[in-house]
Amino acid sequence: MNVKRFFDKHMGFFLMSPTIAVMVLIIIVPLIIGLVMSFFNYNLLTLHRGIPFIGFSNYSKALGDENFWMAFWNTLWWTAANVAGQVALGLSIALLLNQPVKGVGIYKALILIPWAIPSAVAALSWMWLLHPEFGLVNDIAVRLGLVSEPVAWLGRPLTAQVWVVIARVWKEFPLSALIFHAALQTIPKDLYEAAEVDGAGVWKRFWNITIPYLKSSIVVAITLITIWTFNSFNMIWVMTKGGPGGATEILATSIYKTAFQRYNFGFASSQSILMVIFLSAIIIFYLYRVEGKKID
């Protein structure tokens, strides 16, 4: 058997092995290192004193830490608000785009723009919109008489919480709009017409035709948005760094601070692994329910 034929016969193996090697090196190895680090007091500031093994101490410290739980609840609220906002806005836009009306294609291209903007740039442009002295939001609010003088929107806990959610919903909703729009297009148009002839009103048509057809894509959208929002970091980090006073501190920003501002890598690792454990239920649901069917 010559070399060429040997290569030909085992081509699958030759093609797969480089990607598997790379995946092991850059994904499996770091995950193992992270896991191992979480059992050590790995602190860059006290490296000269060695890296003592401390068992589950990092974990028990995290689980008993008030700040950790505050970040946890903030993350849940942040995620829930994002899911609600993105699904509602995405669905409304998708329904409008799906109307049998000429010339709506241009809107489909335009609403995609926020999603194309790098999140760091989007966060900066929202900071400018919300600027405490010269921001457009203050300008509009003053003109409309909603506030008597400019407000530092990102400087107060409650308004900061609301605005970071608005900013991220604005940035991310186009994806769910596209998912819903694609699903809506699979609904046969004559179904609506028949229902209308039979005298079914707008709401009845929506509940009895649209929603059943959309059900599975709504499940997909909610699951994905939940995972992405739970993991997200950029918008909050740039806009508030978790402030003011921890009001917008989510797990991702809090862990980042533990690692790269306090250099406590062991503690940060254990928290990041707890984060994965919290997420695992929804990841398993997603794989089982949504993707399991597609992989064959």
Binding site: V29, P30, F230, N231, A252, A259, A268
Partner: peptide, 22 residues
């Protein structure tokens, strides 16, 4: 394939911390 999908769902900090050390 499942593994590929799962890695896409991990928070980035999970990789960032060990990556920084590596």
């Amino acid at each position: 394939l499942m593994f590929i999908l799962v890695t896409r769902m991990f928070p980035a900090v999970v990789f960032l911390i060990p990556f920084f050390i590596m």
